[in-house]
Amino acid sequence: MRYFLRRLAFLVPLVWVIVTLAFFLVRVAPGGPFDRERKPASPAVERALAEKYHLDESMGSQYLRFLGLKWETGPDGHWHRAPGGLLVGDLGLSLKYRNHTVTDIIRQGLPVSLTLGILAFGFAMGFGIPIGFYTAVRRGSWGDWIGSLLALVVICVPGFVLGPVLILVFGLQLGWFPVGLWGAPLQAVLPMAALGLFFGGRVARLMREGMTQSLQSEYIRTARAKGASELRVLLRHAFPTAVMPVVSYSGPMLADLLTGSFVVENIFQIPGIGVFMVNSSLSRDYTMVVGLVLLYAILLLVLNLLVDLAYGLLDPRVRYE
C-alpha cells in the first residue's frame, strides 16, 4: 500500500515534466497552427488571429496561461487570473478545430478508441491462448507447424498491410463485413482483427513457450504418475503456471492497444482519438498536442502501475518494498 501511494505521488511530477516538454517542443517546430497555403488578407488579420489565441505572447506567458497561473489586468483595470488553464482542468480550444475544445474532442473520441482497444485485447487473447495451448500440447505435429506459422505471420505483417488485406478479402470480395465507419457491431469486426492479430500472435508464442516449459516440469510428471487424467493435467496443473507470461505481457499490450490504434483508425475511418494524435502535431495544433500527450501519459503510467500491482497479487513471490 505504501509502495502504491509512493508510485502515485511520483506520477504527478512525471506527468508535469512530460506535458511541459510537449508544450515547448511543439512550439519550437517551424510554422504555426494558422500557416496556410494562402496568406490571410492582411498582416493586421494575421496579428489579430495570433492575438485571439495568445500566440503573440512570449513562451513563458503562454505557458503560465496554459497552466492557469497567468494574472493580467482586465477591462475593469483590476488584476485577475486569466480564465482556463490546466489547474482548473481546462485544456483550451483546439487551434485547428476552433469550435471544439480539446476536452470535447477527447470526450467524443476516447470511448471509441477504448472500445476498439478492449475488443482487440479480447480478440488477441481469444486468438492467442488457444493456439499457443494447442501448439504446445501437439508439439512437432502438423497442427503445431500451422499454428506456429500463423502466429509468426500475424506478428510479421504490419497493421497497415493487414488492414487493407482484411478489407479486400472480407469486405470487398466476400462482402461479409463493412469496410469502415463505426457504430454497428459488424463494423467493429475487421478493425478489431486488424488491431488485435499482431498481439494475438505474440500471445500465442508466449503461451506456447510457457506451456512447453510447464509440461516439462517435475510436478506435471508427479501429477501424471498419480494417475490424473490428461485433460486435468493440462488444464488444472500446467495451464495456471503457463499463462503467467501472458498475464505480465497483457499490461503493456493493453496500453499499446489503447494508444496505438492510429493506423487502424485511419484505415477504417473510425472516429477515435488516434487520428488526432498524429495529425495534431503535423498541423501544429498546440493545445491538442499537449492535451493528448497529457492523456496518453496518464493512461500509460496508470496502466503500468496497475500491472505491477496485479502481478503482486497473482504471484505471491513478488513483493514490493
Partner: peptide, 15 residues
C-alpha cells in the same frame, strides 16, 4: 476522411 483508399472502399461498398 483523409485516406484515399479508405474513401474509395467506402464508395465502392455504397457507404
Amino acid at each position: 476522411s483523409d485516406s484515399p483508399s479508405t474513401a474509395l472502399n467506402l464508395y465502392l461498398t455504397g457507404e
